[in-house]
């Protein structure tokens, strides 16, 4: 079996829900990359500027909406009636496992952001950060990581078949 046949077989084995999850994962990955690259390429003045930061966050939101809408329209053209069917029990369980990991990452992110905010507010000597608005970046980063985990875990559990471990 050559690579082309393997690819065709793999595509035939792939459910439309997996394709949708993969697209969501890729879109979220691209948005995370965009946000990180904006932060890494920013000057210290830009990082300190609340106007610049709000512009970046607005861009992230606009890109998210546009990419999600475009991808869902594209997916709607190739979809059979699979998405109109309700999820079966196993898929619901996999969805919940995805939410579990997502919730853990969000909780850790919120706690870290609160911790960092208190450090900055109390003006402690240790663990001082040179990045302005760091708690906000931690929150956004945790949100994006949680979304990636939500989609990634569902893809992994759905493909491996084993949802109990």
């Amino acid at each position: 079996m050559n690579n082309k046949q393997k690819l065709i077989q793999w595509l035939q084995e792939t459910s439309f829900r997996e394709v949708t999850l993969s697209v969501d994962f890729i879109v979220t990955g691209y948005i995370s990359y965009f946000y990180l690259s904006q932060l890494l390429n920013a000057t210290p003045e830009q990082l300190a500027s609340i106007e610049w930061l709000s512009t970046v966050l607005l861009e992230v939101i606009v890109y998210s909406i546009v990419l999600m809408v475009v991808s869902y329209i594209a997916l709607a053209f190739i979809s059979d009636d699979e998405l109109s069917r309700p999820m079966d029990v196993r898929e619901k369980q996999i969805n919940l496992v995805g939410y579990k990991y997502s919730a853990i990452i969000l909780q850790v992110g919120v706690v870290l952001a609160l911790f960092q905010y208190n450090i900055a507010a109390q003006d402690f000597e240790f663990m001082q950060s040179s990045v302005p608005h760091l708690p906000l970046h931690i929150l956004v980063g945790a949100f994006l990581a949680a979304e990636l985990a939500h989609y990634g875990v569902q893809l992994y559990k759905g493909r491996s078949g084993d949802i109990y471990e």
């Binding site: 459910s15 829900r17 997996e18 699979e82 079966d88 029990v89 196993r90 898929e91 759905g158 491996s160 078949g161 084993d162 949802i163």
Partner: peptide, 19 residues
């Protein structure tokens, strides 16, 4: 039986116990 093909695959390979 009203489930997805992936679920049948998982049941067959004993990776998932059906309801």
């Amino acid at each position: 039986i009203g489930v997805t093909r992936q679920t049948v695959m998982a049941i067959e390979s004993n990776k998932y116990s059906p309801t």
